[in-house]
C-alpha cells in the first residue's frame, strides 16, 4: 500500500522571503498584453515596465515584478535581451493596494512562447573566455 509522503517544513530563519500573497491579491488576477518600455535588470527582483493601451485609447503604465536576473544571465541573456517595443503578455496578480503593479506569474510573447525561456537566440548560450 502506498503511503502519502509529507515533507516537513524546513525552518530556516536565515533566509525568508516575503509571501507573495501578502503583497499581491489572489482575488485580483490580471492578464493583459502590453508593450515593453524598459526592463530593470536588478536584484532582488527585475522589473518590466509595460504600457497597456486601453479600449478608450488611453495608456496605462504597469510595473511587472519578476525574479532574479542572475538566473537569466547564467543562460547567456543580457540586458539587451528584452528590447523596448516588444509586445508581451502578462499573466499575474495585481498588487493588494490597487496600484498598477503585478507579479509576473507567467510572461509570454504574443505567439505563446514563454519569455526568456532558453537562451536569447544569440547562438551559443555562453560566451566562453
Amino acid at each position: 500500500m502506498r503511503m502519502a509522503l509529507v515533507i516537513l517544513l524546513m525552518t530556516t530563519p536565515a533566509l525568508a522571503h516575503h509571501a507573495f500573497n501578502a503583497e499581491f491579491d489572489a482575488n485580483k488576477p490580471i492578464k493583459f498584453k502590453g508593450t515593453v518600455t524598459k526592463m530593470l535588470w536588478v536584484n532582488p527582483h527585475a522589473w518590466i515596465y509595460v504600457d497597456v493601451k486601453k479600449a478608450d485609447g488611453t495608456v496605462e503604465e504597469w510595473m511587472v515584478e519578476t525574479g532574479t536576473p542572475n538566473t537569466l544571465l547564467r543562460r547567456g541573456l543580457t540586458k539587451e535581451s528584452l528590447k523596448e517595443g516588444t509586445e508581451i503578455v502578462v499573466d499575474g496578480y495585481q498588487s493588494k493596494d490597487g496600484s498598477r503593479r503585478a507579479n509576473g506569474r507567467d510572461l509570454t510573447l504574443p505567439d505563446g512562447r514563454t519569455l526568456f525561456l532558453g537562451s536569447s537566440g544569440t547562438g551559443a548560450p555562453y560566451e566562453k573566455k
Partner: peptide, 18 residues
C-alpha cells in the same frame, strides 16, 4: 497553475527564473 489562485500567486515566477 493548479490548486487555486491562493496557491498560484505564491508560485511566482516561472520555472526558468529558478
Amino acid at each position: 497553475r493548479d490548486g487555486g489562485n491562493a496557491a498560484d500567486v505564491n508560485r511566482a515566477y516561472n520555472e526558468h527564473w529558478m
